[in-house]
Design a protein around this nucleic acid. Structure first.
Lengths: 203, 203
DNA sequence: TTGGGAAGTCAACAGGCGTTGGCATACCGT
DNA sequence: ACGGTATGCCAACGCCTGTTGACTTCCCAA
């Protein structure tokens, strides 16, 4: 019957006027980020995102064209890695780890990306691009032998993404409960070693 | 178009007879594991699984009741961790890492679990149970102070699952290309340290 | 030989999805 | 005051999903 009231609880015009296009675009994007983060690509429906943004689903299409495109925009993601070349060698690990932490805590974009990358091929491709280029480049500037940079960046990514996965996505209790400070202290030597230890494979 | 031929490539009766209930159950389970591994819970459809098993979708329901239940069965998962109590302390890391590796390579169950856990709450719950109990217990037997076991197990899980994620799910090139032997050599000291280093938080 | 149960097929259901196009409404420059 | 345009809603489309129940076919035991 589709008649869910004619007057829905809090319509977009409840408070009075309507929003500017900019405001609506931004509201949709915010809602999309939250939903993608919480539910992953498949379970995050356009209808739910639209409801969160207090807007009709068709508006999402008008502003972003398609769900795939909306996700691409929502997952636009810059690690904004700091320049590590000025950091003394023995502080590299700690610096990188604590930077990642302040970047993640309170920003749900990375979990969203991880959730989606697990099932959506273009999401996986995006994570791959982010980590092989952005992290790869930053690591390249810091590593002695540049040919080893990809491998070292991969190892660093494996530990950092492992933490993101267990803490934000799977929510393993010990990883959720640990304080950022403690976690940083545990992780820093690992990252440091991946960056600086001689490659054990090149005997 | 539901008419994919009427005569589909190789119908269940192509070779002649039909299968035993056991054989069909097993075929469905195998197909389910593959599909869940490749696509995750949402994108792995009952219809696709049934097609892989060369059976009607309704048979899947008859044998497993529901998709949720089929997944629960397909994701039945025992880490089968070896007893580490006989291992000399300085070999613990290497032992655990190489065990995990021989367990994963060639078995798609873990990636399936990871893919699903990223979007499906009951999948996440399952991973949580597996790692907090199975890994937690094994680590508890090996760690000096048992109250530290959960935290140490969590750290170990973060690195091991991080590798599984980057290598099998995201397929980051450097992590895919690296040989198991090299990877084990890189990871062993990390795991070893998470198991044995004094907790830096308890000053 | 025949009956009964197991194994499998078929067609349909109710509901949710992304997406579309037409229609209403409020704003704002003139 | 007014018309155009930006903003928004509504209703529907075609498709795919998990799930169901009735029907057919085969095998094997009596």
């Amino acid at each position: 019957m589709t008649e869910d009231g004619g007057r829905r609880g809090a319509g977009p015009a409840a408070g009075g006027g309507r929003r500017s296009a900019e405001a609506t675009r931004a509201a949709i994007l915010r809602a999309a980020r939250d939903r993608f983060a919480a539910d992953g690509y498949d379970r995050a429906t356009i209808r739910a995102i639209a409801a969160d943004a207090r807007i009709d689903p068709s508006m999402v299409m008008r502003y972003y064209g398609s769900k795939e495109n909306l996700f691409a925009t929502a997952a636009e993601f810059d690690l904004r890695l700091p320049d590590l070349s000025g950091v003394p060698a023995d502080r590299l690990g700690r610096e990188l780890v604590s930077y990642f932490f302040t970047r993640w805590e309170g920003d749900a974009t990375l979990p969203a990306l991880l959730r989606t990358a697990s099932t959506n091929p273009s999401g996986a491709e995006r994570v791959r691009a982010i980590f092989t280029t952005q992290l790869g480049v930053a690591v390249g500037r810091v590593v002695a032998d540049p040919t080893e940079a990809p491998r070292r960046a991969g190892l660093v990514a494996s530990q950092l993404l492992g933490v993101a996965l267990t803490r934000y996505v799977l929510r393993l209790p010990p990883m959720v409960d640990i304080s950022p400070a403690d976690l940083i202290t545990w992780l820093a030597p690992t990252i440091h070693r991946y960056l600086t230890d001689p490659d054990p494979a090149s005997h």
